[in-house]
Simulated assay, not measured.
Amino acid sequence: MKKVLLFVYDSFAEFEVAILNTCLSGSEYDLVTCSPHSSTQTVTSAGKLKIKPDLSVNEVATDDYAALIIPGGTPFPLLQNSAVTEMIRTFFDKGKLIGAICGGPVLLGATGILNHIQYTASLTEDDSNYTSVMNWSNKREEHLVCDQNVITATGSNYIQFAEEVLRRLNVFPANTENPLKYFKVPTMS
């Protein structure tokens, strides 16, 4: 079975990846979680969900995964975590798919990846905690940006983010029109 790695950390915004995770559960992909801490240490999401990750970032074998997903939250404490930045950079350098949403692209910035791609994020130059790692000249004021092997999105654009990641993973054909309609349009089913 193929695998997708979800990076979880204290404060990560679980709602930004919930639909993606749900859709992966019915696919040929297993979802594996990793955190910057020991796999025995619980991570608490922005919505106060407690998650026990499968692995620590030190245990990740990049070649085992088709993609890395980085949700938003408050990643500031992780900017100097070399294990986190090395893991992310390895995914990029190997051409693996990376999806980062909302504040997640900050971690791409900490690796230098934002110097090589166009991106979007739910951040502005007023977010002074992140000024040192963001390449603001490469930021696009768009809801979703795909460049090389990286997909970035604003936090409220989580459905389109999920669709693009799922397309790139071939969970459904690239020409499928409105594949996540169920999540966009209320029905009685």
Rank of each mutant, 00 (worst) to 15 (best):
F7Q: 07
T22M: 10
F91K: 05
E177P: 00
Q160H: 12
I19E: 12
T22C: 08
S27W: 10
C102W: 02
S56T: 13
G112S: 03
Q160W: 08
F161W: 01
A83K: 14
L78H: 02
I159V: 15
T62I: 15
P186C: 04
S128G: 06
T111N: 00
A121H: 03
L169C: 08
S137I: 13
E28Q: 12
G73W: 01
V43Q: 09
P75G: 10
A121D: 06
L97R: 01
Q80P: 02
Y29Q: 04
T42W: 05
S35T: 12
T40A: 15
V57N: 06
Q41D: 13
Y65Q: 09
E86R: 14
G155L: 08
P186I: 10
H143L: 15
T40D: 14
V57G: 04
P36G: 04
I117E: 06
A110K: 00
A162F: 05
S128E: 14
A121R: 06
K94D: 10
S45W: 06
P71K: 02
G109H: 01
A162R: 01
E163H: 03
L114Q: 03
L180N: 00
S122R: 02
H116W: 05
V57M: 04
D64H: 12
L166W: 06
V60H: 06
S132I: 07
T40Y: 13
E14V: 09
I69H: 00
Y9T: 02
V17S: 08
T120N: 01
G73L: 01
S189E: 12
N170Y: 04
T90M: 09
I69K: 00
T40I: 11
